[in-house]
Structures are given as structure tokens and as C-alpha cells.
Amino acid sequence: MTTVERPVRTFVLDAAGIEKSYRRGLRHRQNILRGADITLRPGEVVGLVGENGSGKSTFMKILVGALRADAGTVVVDGKLGYCPQEPVFYERLTCDEHFELFGRAYRMSPAAERRARRELYAALGFERYASTRADRLSGGTLAKLNLGLALLADPEVLLLDEPYAGFDWDTYVKFWQLVAQRREQGRSVLIISHFVADEERFDRIVQLRDGRAEPR
């Protein structure tokens, strides 16, 4: 019998030479990203910081495939979860119905979806809102639902755009407990924010400046 060793993964996400500009008027183009690079290794928590208008959200949308870059490449090795800055929800659906819908989109079995849903309700503390429609949820609970949907399929890499917005202190603590668990499981997390308060929680912090991502 021949044993074939699987190659060791050196990254779960690798973006190289990302460029993006927008037209401003008839003749002028504003360069937002000028060859930005970033690599996430398995089990790594990385922060991407930058001033308002530095292109953080543009970079994130390119990484998740929601926006096309003018140049550069993005390679993802495994499932990707995305938590946008503004929660994406359907007003008339309950929290349970959101999880069911996203579970089907992720091609999860009904049993796996229900199990993951229960775990996320417990971890984030909003099970009592399971049957509540999204248009009746507070901003904080919508933020929990937003994060829960991104985590539902247990992605190898989780991308979070300003995830702290709407979190109270208890949710903030629960959030970092989830991040620590994912690191231990070899999962990777990229957090984009305009500031980083708890630097010791990150393995690396990268700063987006003048359209390029540089170690801070």
C-alpha cells in the first residue's frame, strides 16, 4: 500500500498585488489600493487597521469576492465566512429562518445546521430571539445574528468588517472567546477595524496606508 502525505497548508488566504481605483469625474481616478498584500496562515488572528477612507472595506469586499479588483489575485484554501459591517438580513424572517436559509446556501445537512445553530445561540446568548423576526430585533441582537450566520458553516477563514459595532460588554467578551476557540482549532480570523484596543489578542496587526498593507 502506498501512503500519500497531504501537503501542509501554509495559508488559508493569500492576496497579492491588489489594486483598486474609482473614477472621480470625467478624467480623474482615485487610487484606493496600490498593490496591497495579505496572507493568513492556519490558526492565526490578524487585525487590519487603517484610517477612515484608507480602503479597508474595499479590501475586505475584494477578499470575499463581493468586489472585483483592477489587478492582483486572491486565493482561499477552504470555506470562507464573511461578517459585513452592516448586518445583512431579511426583515420578515426570524433568526431560526435565517439560519435555515443560510444552512441551505452552505449545503449543510438539516441536522448539522440545527446543531451549529444551537451552539451559536448558546455561545452568543440570543436563543430567546430564535422565533423573533429580524425587523423586531435590536441593533445588538442583529449584530449577533450577523456574526452567527458567518460562523454557521465553521469556515476555515473568517473575515469580519468592524465586528464590534453594536456589541455590549458581555457580547464583546463572548466574541473573543469564540475567536480564541477558532484559533485553537486551527481556524483563522481577519478583523478589519479603524482601531485595535486589545493588541495582545492578535497574532499580527497589519496597517493599510497609502493603498498598501504593511506590518505595524
Rank of each mutant, 00 (worst) to 15 (best):
F102G: 01
C83V: 12
L48V: 15
I18H: 03
D77W: 06
T58Y: 02
P87W: 05
S57D: 06
I32E: 10
D77V: 05
G81Q: 06
A69Q: 12
D37F: 09
G25T: 07
K79P: 08
E91W: 06
F59R: 08
R68S: 11
G17R: 03
V49I: 15
L33F: 06
G78F: 13
E51K: 12
V88M: 10
S21F: 14
G35N: 04
L48A: 03
G53D: 07
I62Y: 08
A66E: 12
D37E: 11
T58W: 02
G81V: 11
D37V: 11
G65K: 06
R29H: 14
S57R: 04
L63N: 04
L67H: 08
G55M: 05
F99D: 02
E91F: 09
V45C: 13
N31G: 11
Q30E: 15
T58S: 01
L67M: 11
A16F: 04
T39R: 14
Y82D: 03
Y106H: 00
S57C: 13
Y22V: 15
T94G: 08
V88Q: 11
G81A: 14
L93Y: 11
S57T: 15
V88Y: 02
L26W: 12
E86Q: 12
R23F: 11
N31F: 11
A69W: 08
L33T: 09
R68Q: 13
E86M: 09
G72D: 06
L80E: 00
L80T: 00
R27M: 14
A36E: 08
F59K: 09
R104F: 01
G53I: 06
R27C: 04
N31V: 15
R27Y: 13
